[in-house]
């Protein structure tokens, strides 16, 4: 069932990581990704990894959850490693048929695997510890300077917020429509590609129609609740930086500096 798919997962908690301001976390992720891409050799990776493990430990997110989140990406990770393994030129140490494995290949495959995994886990840590609403608020606040350039920052964050709200509703709706059409003998599982694509029409048409109706009713309901765009709007939860946000900023800067320095020394 579609319901079992978990999108934008968030694990509520009250750890130092959860309590950080979403803006801090967003900036932190940017710093982390930069550090990851600047990292050159195992020492740098070690530093970034140590940092990531500390964050995981602090957030009390179970390692099982993290392992599960990487699983769907395993194929891509392995494929990248595979390509790096065989297509990196260098000192050959093993040759099987047309495949040649070099020492450089092994190194770059390992580093690539580390990089992708750490990238994925790091960004997941953001969504695991930050509610989607806080994330949207944080993004809106960080992007607010762009308002001067007439970039629709408020509208964008409102759209994200509504999308997050309606994803579960639409998934449920899809399940219901599928069941109703199956009850009339619709068959979604057999036949060739064209037949299967055609079989989707009885699901997609009603789904779009209800989605549009929902959108229309939601717009009316929002207007009835005095929505008139972002002008003069206030917030119940105002984002405020606390002392731990300052500490986090120092840690983030230190991480970035460390990686840049290590890079100079080729480490």
């Amino acid at each position: 069932m579609l319901k079992d798919v978990t999108l934008g997962q968030f694990f509520p908690g009250n750890t130092p990581i959860h309590r950080l301001d979403p803006r801090t976390k967003l900036l932190f992720v940017v710093a982390y990704i930069t550090a990851l891409f600047l990292a050159k050799w195992f020492v740098s990776y070690g530093v970034v990894l140590a940092f990531l493990l500390t964050v995981i430990a602090l957030s009390r997110i179970s390692p099982k959850v993290i392992a599960r989140s990487v699983k769907p990406l395993l194929f891509i990770i392995l494929l990248t490693a595979f390509l790096n393994l065989f297509y990196t030129p260098g000192e050959p140490i093993l040759q099987v048929w047309i495949f040649r494995v070099s020492k450089e290949g092994i190194v770059s495959a390992v580093l690539m695997m580390l990089r992708i995994t750490m990238l994925v886990v790091g960004t997941f840590m953001l969504t695991y510890t930050t509610s989607p609403i806080a994330l949207t608020d944080g993004l809106e606040s960080l992007l607010s300077p762009l308002k001067r350039l007439h970039f629709p920052v408020h509208e964008l964050s409102m759209m994200m917020c509504i999308a997050l709200r309606f994803i579960p509703t639409l998934i449920e709706e899809t399940d219901k429509i599928m069941a109703a059409q199956k009850a009339r003998g619709a068959d979604f599982e057999s036949g060739n590609l064209i037949r299967r694509a055609k079989a989707l029409i009885p699901i997609l048409v009603p789904l779009f129609i209800t989605a549009f109706r929902r959108a229309d009713e939601l717009a009316t309901a929002m207007e009835a609740r005095c929505y008139h765009g972002g002008d003069g709007r206030t917030k119940m939860n105002v984002l405020r930086f606390h002392r731990c946000d300052g500490a986090a900023a120092v840690v983030g800067m230190a991480l970035l500096t460390a990686v840049i320095v290590l890079r100079r020394f080729g480490l």
Binding site: E173, K176, I177, A179, A180, Q181, K182, A183, R184, G185, A186, I201, P202, V205, P206, I209, T210
Partner: peptide, 28 residues
Amino acid sequence: IRFRVGLVFQYPEAQLFEETVFRDIAFG
């Protein structure tokens, strides 16, 4: 069994999709 046991869901109008009522009724 799907055809011999007909099931009408709650708010069944949400399943309508065809161009005409005739074609929609004819789907089953």
